[in-house]
Write a protein that binds this DNA or RNA. Structure first.
Lengths: 213, 213
DNA sequence: GTCTATACTCAGATAGAC
DNA sequence: GTCTATCTGAGTATAGAC
């Protein structure tokens, strides 16, 4: 009897996901038809739906089917390393680079944008993405707290709020790249670092107003 | 014979747009059906399409049908006033408030997000929005240039790049509000101002490295 | 190939302005 | 009374998931 070859099946799934990824990035989820995906992947509708239960499932796979490659640390591992690093400020800058880096890849900003939108309407995707998101934000919060304790950043900043803003600034890199053709994420990364540096590093305390004892 | 009453017709269009706005904000453009809009507006499909040529036209109207109210300055007028203001730094902060303010309204962040997405796929909407966008950015560029000349901000910052980043930071307020339920735009506006202040205000010039004559 | 979902249409009913 | 803006809702054509 014929048995399934898991490696072959995975490869076939990846082939479909790769084809679909370009379409989703260029046209978005709703405007990409399964017929287009079939054509791009070179297969029939029947065959496509043998590998994925729905168009939605293909979209989800774009964001989770990343096979770990040997010898390369995963994002999770690198975040854990940052949390354990000796110098929290350097680790913070490294983490920002880690999170902002993919914005320079051609399809990624559009896909991230689309994922944000779709997460609104798709609780399963929402859950999928928020796991990643929580890990990123909690790493930043940890680093901000440590850097604050060691006097490397302004201690008046609230670590939770500030982590949310660091995430927002990184997200801005993606959305700007997705919406403005002239915006180059690679070229603007140094400016992002500059903004963060000036925002976070300790400042001379302003003289408090009002009468003093 | 019966004649058209322009005021009544406008009011009816607004009624439809208001009903549709909530649906577009909650579900997005593609997932909102014309049948739903009809139901929400309390009218038949035939009547709906008597007022709008297409579903798309309703979506466009969400962003352009803002009637100027008497006694209240329009955004354009306020931007022009800022460009002509005496104190460019104060005018810059005011302009940031003006552009960031709507993020505090409940439906706006989701709508702005949806507009960004749809603009990708709809050249007419793209043109519509980029007119607004260009006016906002060029106002910021002008103010940055003036503030730079008068020593109010760091002269090493490029006005065009910096204006793009100020826009990106404001956009981050909208996207964060749209995607993170715990993020309060009104509460975070002071932090946005703080980030901008620290980013833009003049800094002590670092001692240049290398040999000097 | 099948079948559902949905943007839009049309033939006609109602009613207000002249 | 006539004419036409406004409105109805069943109907159609088509797209697109499966």
């Amino acid at each position: 009897m014929r048995t399934v070859d898991p490696a072959k099946r995975r490869a076939r799934r990846r082939h479909i996901v790769n084809a679909a990824t370009e379409l989703f990035a260029a046209q978005g989820f709703e405007r990409t038809t399964t017929a287009e995906i079939c054509k791009a992947a070179g297969m029939s509708a029947g065959n496509l739906f043998h590998y994925f239960r729905s168009k939605r499932a293909i979209f989800h796979a774009v964001f989770v089917d990343d096979e770990p490659e040997d010898g390369v640390a995963t994002k999770s591992e690198r975040l854990a390393a940052a949390r354990a690093a000796d110098d929290p400020w350097t680790a913070l800058l490294d983490t920002v680079d880690l999170l902002a880096g993919p914005a320079a890849e051609p399809l990624v900003p559009a896909l991230v944008m689309e994922a944000m939108i779709q997460a609104h309407r798709d609780p399963e995707l929402e859950a999928l993405l928020s796991r990643d998101n929580d890990e990123e934000r909690s790493t930043l919060t940890t680093l901000l707290r440590k850097a604050s304790a060691s006097g490397q950043i302004d201690p008046t900043l609230d670590p939770d709020d500030t982590a949310a803003w660091v995430m927002a600034l990184i997200a801005a890199l993606y959305t700007s790249a997705a919406t403005e053709p002239s915006f180059s994420p690679a070229g603007q990364l140094p400016t992002l670092r500059l903004i963060l540096q000036r925002f976070l590093r300790p400042h001379a305390t302003p003289v408090p107003e009002g009468p003093r004892p």
